Simulated assay, not measured.
Amino acid sequence: MSRTMRSLNSLLGGGVEEEEEEESDGRCGLSYQERIYGFAACLAGGLLCTLLSLLLIFRPIKFAVTFTFGNLLSLASTAFLVGPMRQVNMMFDPARIVASIIFIGSIVIALVCALYIHNRLLTLLAIIIEFCALIWYSLSYIPFARATARKCMGTCFEVEF
Rank of each mutant, 00 (worst) to 15 (best):
T4S: 15
R6S: 14
S7M: 12
L8V: 15
N9H: 09
N9K: 12
N9T: 10
G14Q: 04
E17K: 04
E21V: 00
E21Q: 12
D25M: 13
G26M: 08
R27Y: 05
G29P: 11
S31T: 12
Y32M: 05
E34R: 00
I36Y: 03
I36Q: 09
Y37H: 08
G38L: 02
A40L: 14
A41N: 09
C42P: 03
C42L: 09
C42T: 11
A44Y: 07
G45Q: 07
L47V: 14
C49P: 08
S53W: 07
L54P: 02
L56F: 03
F58I: 12
R59M: 14
I61C: 01
F63K: 08
F69G: 09
A76N: 03
S77D: 03
T78P: 04
A79C: 03
F80R: 00
L81Q: 12
V82L: 01
G83Q: 04
P84G: 10
P84D: 01
V88E: 00
N89S: 11
F92K: 13
R96K: 13
V98Q: 06
S100M: 04
A110L: 11
L111G: 14
L111K: 11
V112E: 06
V112H: 12
V112S: 12
C113Q: 07
C113E: 10
C113L: 02
L121H: 09
L122D: 07
L122F: 13
L125A: 15
I128F: 09
E130H: 13
A133R: 00
W136I: 10
S138A: 14
L139A: 15
L139M: 15
Y141S: 06
Y141W: 14
P143C: 10
P143W: 08
F144H: 07
R146C: 08
T148D: 06
T148G: 00
T148A: 13
K151V: 00
C152E: 09
G154D: 07
T155N: 12
C156F: 14
F157S: 11
E160F: 03
F161T: 01
